[in-house]
Nucleic acid binder design. Structure first.
Length: 230
DNA sequence: GCGACAG
DNA sequence: ATCTTGTCGC
C-alpha cells in the first residue's frame, strides 16, 4: 500500500505541534464518495499487552460479499506515548500501519475503531489513517469525543446527526435494536451519507460491523476458542 | 479557572 | 484501553 513517510505520526512530546499537524492534515481529507465496488474491506483495532507497555494492532481483511475473514495480522511495538484525548492517532497509528503493511492486499475500504472527522480539529484516527494511506476509511466509535445530538429511536437503522460548532460531523447510528448506538463519521473518500449505510450493511447480529468486530477480538485477544460451555 | 475527554 | 465473575435483560 502507498504511504507518505512525512505523514506518518511521530510523537516527540510536543502537544501543540501535534495539534498543528492535525489542522494541516485535516485539509487533505476528502468527503466525497470515491471508492470502487467493494471486493475486500479491512477492519483495524488496537489493544495493549504487558500493562500497556506493548501496543498490539490487529488488521483483518474480509471478503465484502461473504463477510468472512481472508487474512488476519497482528503487529506489536513498544507503546510510544500515553493516551491523550484528541491525539489517539499519534499513539496507535504507527502500529496499525505496520499491521496493514503486513496484510499484503489493499482493501477497498477500511473500518477504524475510533472517530473520523468527528474530532476537535477534524482529524480523528480514521481520517488520519485515510490521509496517510490515501485509502477510503470510516470511523466507528463506541462513544462521543465532541458534539451533541437529539433523541434516537430504538430500532436498528435509526440515526440522528451529531453536531459540533454548527456542523454535522457524524451519525449516531443504532446498529442493533435497543442497543447503545455507534458514532459513525467519514474518515476519507467516503461521504457523510454513505458512512452509516456502509456500516449498517456490514452489521450482522452484533453491535459492531464485522470488520471492526473481528479486529477487536484479535487486538484484545478474545479470538481464542473457549474451553467449555456455550 | 473548572470540567470534558475516541481508545 | 485494561484490571475481572457472575449476572440481569432482551
Amino acid at each position: 500500500m502507498p504511504l507518505s513517510p512525512d505523514l506518518i505520526p511521530a510523537w516527540d512530546g510536543n502537544v501543540a505541534k501535534a495539534r498543528q499537524l492535525q489542522l494541516e492534515l485535516a485539509t487533505k481529507v476528502r468527503l466525497e464518495d470515491d471508492f470502487p465496488p467493494l471486493r475486500h474491506v479491512a477492519g483495524v483495532d488496537v489493544g495493549f499487552e504487558d500493562g500497556g507497555a506493548v501496543t498490539r494492532a490487529a488488521a483483518v481483511l474480509l471478503d465484502a460479499k461473504t463477510l468472512l475473514p481472508v487474512k488476519e495480522i497482528v503487529a506489536r511495538r513498544p507503546t510510544c506515548m500515553p493516551y491523550i484525548p484528541g491525539l489517539l492517532s499519534f499513539r496507535e497509528l504507527p502500529t496499525v500501519l505496520q499491521a496493514l503493511q503486513a496484510l499484503a492486499g489493499v482493501p477497498d475500504l477500511i473500518f477504524v475503531d475510533g472517530h473520523g472527522i468527528a474530532h476537535p480539529r477534524g482529524l480523528g484516527i480514521a481520517a488520519h489513517l485515510g490521509v496517510v494511506t490515501g485509502l477510503p476509511t470510516i470511523g466507528v466509535a463506541k462513544s462521543i469525543l465532541v458534539g451533541t445530538h437529539g433523541e434516537l429511536g430504538p430500532s436498528r437503522g435509526e440515526r440522528v446527526p451529531l453536531r459540533y460548532r454548527d456542523k454535522v460531523i457524524a451519525s449516531v447510528l443504532r446498529s442493533k435494536d435497543k442497543i447503545r448506538p455507534l458514532i459513525v463519521s467519514p474518515g476519507h473518500r467516503v461521504s457523510m451519507e454513505s458512512a452509516p449505510e456502509l456500516v449498517l450493511s456490514f452489521c450482522t447480529k452484533y453491535r459492531l460491523p464485522e470488520p471492526t468486530r473481528l479486529a477487536d477480538r484479535l487486538a484484545s485477544r478474545r479470538d481464542r476458542v473457549r474451553e467449555q460451555g456455550t
